[in-house]
Design a protein around this nucleic acid. Structure first.
Length: 218
DNA sequence: AAAACGGGGGC
DNA sequence: GCCCCAGTTTT
């Protein structure tokens, strides 16, 4: 894909994603302006398929929606609320750990600095960027496997790690798309441009795509 | 029955 | 850079 094609690609993408619902993305978006909810939603969705995490975070937040309230819950109560999200045992422990940290060192408030968030156990660049952008409205690019895979597949970037992708996109993706790129590509990646067997024959972006890594198994 | 799926930590 | 981590959903 030529660099000059990006606006057209984003426009096609904006139309394409409307045909699918993506519960988790929608729900995370509804957390906009609430950094704690963004953070917890994001922790829940780590290494799981996003569609199961929407209802799970709903159930959890109906029990507790602040670090202080969350700490009144037992590990088992959290596990039950977030089932059937994968890794639910570890995630219950991790959520409680982070709530304790927020209470003890941050007066119960989620910090708005990327570097501060990155010091949290279990918070990497994907999570930290999502908190900073959706939670606090600051500029940032959230690179998950979909953003990484698809922007490479297009040939728009050539990178090996998600962090390199983030830096490459910071350098060349117009700022107006920073907030939506993750939202678009998660939905697009789940429904059309899947990792191993993408549905290229019905893809609206086919003409722009270099098909890098298509068919590659792991 | 089998393959697909999706971040971060530790080293 | 490489390996490990658990469970649900799709084919």
């Amino acid at each position: 894909m030529k660099e000059s094609d990006i606006r057209q690609v984003m426009s096609l993408l904006a139309s394409a994603v409307k045909q699918w619902d993506s519960p988790a993305v929608t729900i995370v978006a509804q957390r906009e302006g609430n950094p704690f909810k963004v953070l917890v939603s994001c922790l829940l969705s780590l290494r799981t398929q996003d569609r199961t995490t929407g209802p799970a975070s709903e159930r959890l937040f109906s029990l507790a929606d602040t670090p202080e309230k969350m700490l009144h819950l037992s590990e088992q109560e959290i596990e039950q609320a977030i089932y059937p999200v994968g890794f639910y045992r570890n995630k219950a422990v991790q959520i409680l750990d982070i709530c304790r940290l927020l209470q003890s060192k941050y007066q119960g408030r989620v910090p708005d600095e990327l570097d501060e968030l990155l010091t949290f156990r279990g918070v990497g660049r994907k999570t930290a960027n999502l908190v900073v952008t959706l939670g606090f409205g600051k500029p940032g690019i959230c690179v998950d496997t979909h953003v990484h895979r698809i922007s490479n597949r297009w040939g728009y970037v050539q990178t090996k790690t998600p962090e390199e992708t983030e830096m490459a996109l910071r350098a060349k993706l117009p700022a107006e798309f920073w907030l939506v790129i993750n939202d678009y590509l998660v939905t697009f990646g789940q429904n059309q441009c899947t990792p191993i067997s993408p549905r290229c024959s019905t893809c609206p972006l086919d003409a722009f795509c270099a098909r890098v890594g298509v068919g590659k198994s792991r």
